[in-house]
Design a protein around this nucleic acid. Structure first.
Lengths: 270, 270
DNA sequence: GAAACCTCTTGATCTGAATCAAGCGATGCG
DNA sequence: CGCATCGCTTGATTCAGATCAAGAGGTTTC
């Protein structure tokens, strides 16, 4: 089921917020090949696209709406891996992992997605190094994000997790504004951060005390530097204010004797 | 500093335990190009190869010894991301993330590593789709691993984490034996699992009660099915005993009404 | 327009892992 | 040979976040 002309138009219109770069730099004919094989479909809120254990059949790109990927244990408790907004893709990594899908994918609101069959993607990777490189970049970015999640869980307190999440949200959504919104409902964000909705709620109270106004899903910062406490060396690179005067926190990123020192301990056998 | 003939021999000898498949399926000339540009070096235990914030300069492959990748927060606390044994590579993903390295890499015992300069790797990816596909597979596998870590932290109790870790160790190291060893010292494993050494130690006591004998770093299972409790759908695919009679636990993987049911709740707005 | 529902918030209690603090047994060194 | 060191274990205590329970505010439904 190739796409109709109308659908292609919709897709092109969507390229504006195309963050993933899945198609960037690839030849026009290559793009045509891929799009011919794809289809554009609408899904209702809550629709489950992929379940753990399914064979990965498609790469999904969110055109309109939102989705999430998550894992579930035997008791039915969920750990959110990623939350997707328009332009984001999922299952690109899964199809190269080998074996069945380790994740569930669920549409979170009425959404429109582009579906690209897995066998097409796999074949095209071997034909087109630029496409392969794009996928590599995307998967590497996911991996980076996963690493952040890991150390957030291992290391950070709820306040730090939420603060860091706010910082990345702010930088990604509206770096020039003192205001941004939560792109998902609070319980979803809480699960993504690995805390309960109750704890999330209480943590928001603490955040308010730092000078951030929270009104429903609207977050208003008193000034541009209130989130600097939560900045780390990765994130600093994305922040236009990094190193400026107001950013007191940044002092401890560059030299960071604590790091060098701490790394040097802890040698040892296998 | 290209490799000497002798070093090349060492490398080829090492291909036996080459898990990563970094070079599999690529042309002989391509391989030569890559190896010409690489070097083989020895490092002492504890040596830090990369620190957070460094520019990624090399891809590292462990030939002999062991290494680990980890992140550190401002207070100097560490979260281990991966632990590398011979044949494993690191920094392949980082060089495609853009920006500085979000991780530290440290050699854990006297080790020999292959160093492949980042600019060579990046260039070769665009020349050789097979190489790009190999990298994609490797990074995807890391990502999968990271996802396991995430849900382990989010969801699982220490007992479940350790059990799951033992299961994967067992399947990876010696699927046909009732015995395997911890490849790292206990405090390192504990950190990888996101728990303290004390908790790890206590958890091992619980594990013993399940019929697993722990003598230092040697782990002996009473029978092949004692770890089945910790199996999940991902891991089942690797387990030769999956579905056999002794594997009672597996019953709940196939139908798994809990999963289907639980997924269906939890719809909702953005 | 009232009732039912849903999300989020707030409060009280409980639990389990971190922390603090010894103690044990190997290994290495003077 | 005895002492120090290191990795691990074990015990006691603490405390943060989960859980349980209730309530407030907003939206949908009939």
């Amino acid at each position: 089921m190739p796409m109709t002309v109308k659908e292609l138009e919709v897709l092109h219109a969507s390229q504006g917020h195309e963050k993933s770069g899945l198609f960037s730099g690839i030849s026009e004919t290559g793009l045509q090949t891929l799009l011919q094989a794809s289809s554009l479909r609408d899904f209702a809120a809550g629709h489950v696209l992929v379940q753990q254990g399914d064979k990965p059949e498609c790469l999904y790109m969110v055109i309109k709406g939102a989705a999430r990927t998550f894992r579930m244990d035997a008791e039915g408790r969920e750990a959110t891996i990623r939350m997707l907004l328009p332009g984001d893709t999922c299952m690109e990594a899964v199809m190269f992992m080998g074996g069945d899908s380790p994740i569930n994918v669920q549409v979170m609101e009425a959404s429109q997605l582009l579906l690209l069959p897995a066998h097409i993607v796999k074949r095209h990777v071997l034909d087109d190094a630029a496409f392969a490189a794009n996928l590599l970049r995307i998967v590497a970015r996911h991996y980076k994000n996963a690493m952040h999640q890991i150390d957030a869980m291992n290391i950070k307190s709820p306040l730090q997790r939420v603060g860091y999440y706010f910082l990345t949200r702010h930088l990604e959504m509206a770096p020039d504004s003192l205001e941004f919104t939560l792109p998902f409902r609070k319980q979803t964000v809480a699960n993504y951060l690995g805390i309960t909705p109750e704890t999330f709620s209480r943590t928001l109270q603490q955040i308010k005390a730092l000078g951030i106004d929270i009104d429903g899903e609207r977050i208003k910062m008193r000034d541009a530097y209130v989130l600097c406490h939560f900045c780390d060396s990765d994130t600093a690179a994305l922040c236009s204010r990094h190193g400026k005067d107001g950013c007191e926190q940044c002092a401890h990123h560059q030299g960071n004797p604590a790091v060098a020192h701490s790394v040097m301990r802890n040698t040892g056998r296998t």
